[in-house]
Structures are given as structure tokens and as C-alpha cells.
Amino acid sequence: MPTKIEKDAVTGTETTGHEWDGIKELNTPLPKWWLYSYYATILWSIAYFVLYPAWPSLSGHTPGVLGWTMRGEIAAEMEAAKAAQGPMLRRIAASSLDDIRKSTDLQAYAMAGGRSAFGVQCAPCHGAGGAGAKGFPNLVDDSWIWGGTLDDIYTTIQFGIRNANDKSRLSQMPRFGVDGMLTAAQIDDVAEYVLSLSRRSRDAGAAKRGEAVYAENCVACHQEGGKGNPEMGAPNLAANIWTFGGDKATIVESVRNARAGSMPAWIDRLDDATIKMLAVYVHALGGGK
């Protein structure tokens, strides 16, 4: 606080008494409009306190007379978005899969809706891009365990694989080694034969012996030449595309202990329009037949 008001000689303005290295600060008054703007912001904040959630308390906060919450706003927005999607979803539910494919706008909508549902429901196992993981099939290539037509994919998504649903896709590979149906040597031979189907065998003799084992035990489901059978969920063994792995040790383990991948029946969890959109989306990932 200056003890004495000093006037600047040049401008005639009073100084604040603050001085830095001989430079003195002029006491130029603030404009009144600035002061009133400041009061206006205070009034604004008081109005805000009253209208909106503002003050924290020990268990929660003041609600504000408008009752507005951020969560409520998001819920309302989601509600509105759902309502806006309604007409297209009803059209998709009422159309056959073929009709959806043929209609440009339904197809585009199904692709977008399918992508979003895929990211939520399917990506945890099949990967965000549908590339799969060990035990979870790749959906991008054209090798399908249970069939790759639009209808096949639709049925698989609806009822799933090896689950409690009545219409679930079911098949069970025998545990050839664990249940003593084949000896360890026979399993080794048949694995060598399976490798030879994708031209990877290094032991022609074992493969030859394995061919006989295959003809006796495996051909009923996996078919001649290992081309597989989607009717029974028997994978193609010749394409060098593997769900559980294609090295010899993994094939031996698959024959010894069998494999039984499982997938939920989505009809119990999702509405028909979403399942249809998923089928169209998965079919369009690249491998659809």
C-alpha cells in the first residue's frame, strides 16, 4: 500500500506504488463494463448452481432444479438413436437374407449394423477383423466348418455350436487316443497323412500307413482327401487352414483328445434383425459363398 499517492509526471496518471528496476506501474482504472461482465459471470454461476448439479455432499451432490444429469442425457440420446433405427431394423427383420443382399440400402445398413454388433458380440473370440484365434475360426477366408452360404452363417449364428439350445449344431469327434481307439503309433501315422494332404509330410512311409488308418476312422466325416463336410462340422484338412493349429504335435493332440469348439446360440440373446445383419456382415468379410 503506497503511503502517498504519486502522480506520474508524463501522463498525469497516479501510480500503484509498485516499482521494478525503476519502472513504475500506472494505476489505470479498469473499465466499468469489465466490472459488470464480472458480476454477470457471478450471476451466471449462481443460476447454474440452482439449475444444474453443482455442490458435492458426503453422499452425492445437489441435483439442481432441472434434474439434469449427464447419464440421463446419454440415455435420452440412446433412446432417440434406437427410435431412429427402428424403421430400418423392422424392414431388415421382415426381409429375407437374399432380399437384404439385393437391396443397396438394406445391404449398406446391414453392413454397418453388423459391423457394430460384431465388434460387441463376436470380436472377443473371432477378433475385431474376424481373423480368429486358436480355437476360434477365421471368418475372413473361404474355409467354413459349418458352411459359408448366407443361410449357413445365419443358422450358425442363430443356434450356435455345441450348446444347450435344441437346434444347436452338434457333432462330436471321437477321442481316438484317450478312449483307446487308436494306438499312439497309428495316431502318429494318421497325423503324417493329414500333413501330406497339404503337401507338408516328410515321412512318406508313415503317411502311407496313415492313409489306411484315415480310410478306416476319419473318412466318414472328413471325406476323401480331407476335404471336410460342413453338414457335420468336419473341417477341411487339406487347405492348410487350421482352427487349432496345423503343426504335427497339434494334429496328434487333435486326434488323441478330439476337438469340440463351442459357440453360443445368439437367438437367445439378440433380436432377429441383428442376427441377420451379422450374417450379412460376416458373409461379406470375404469368404462368403
Binding site: 477383423g129 477366408d141 474355409s143 477341411n236 487352414i241 470375404g286 469368404g287
Partner: peptide, 12 residues
């Protein structure tokens, strides 16, 4: 597409 980078088909 980056996921997957490529895919191998049945015919190789």
C-alpha cells in the same frame, strides 16, 4: 484392411 493383413484361401 489391417485385421487380418491377408487371408489364405482353400486353394492356396
Amino acid at each position: 484392411d489391417r485385421n487380418p493383413l491377408f487371408s489364405t484361401l482353400v486353394d492356396g
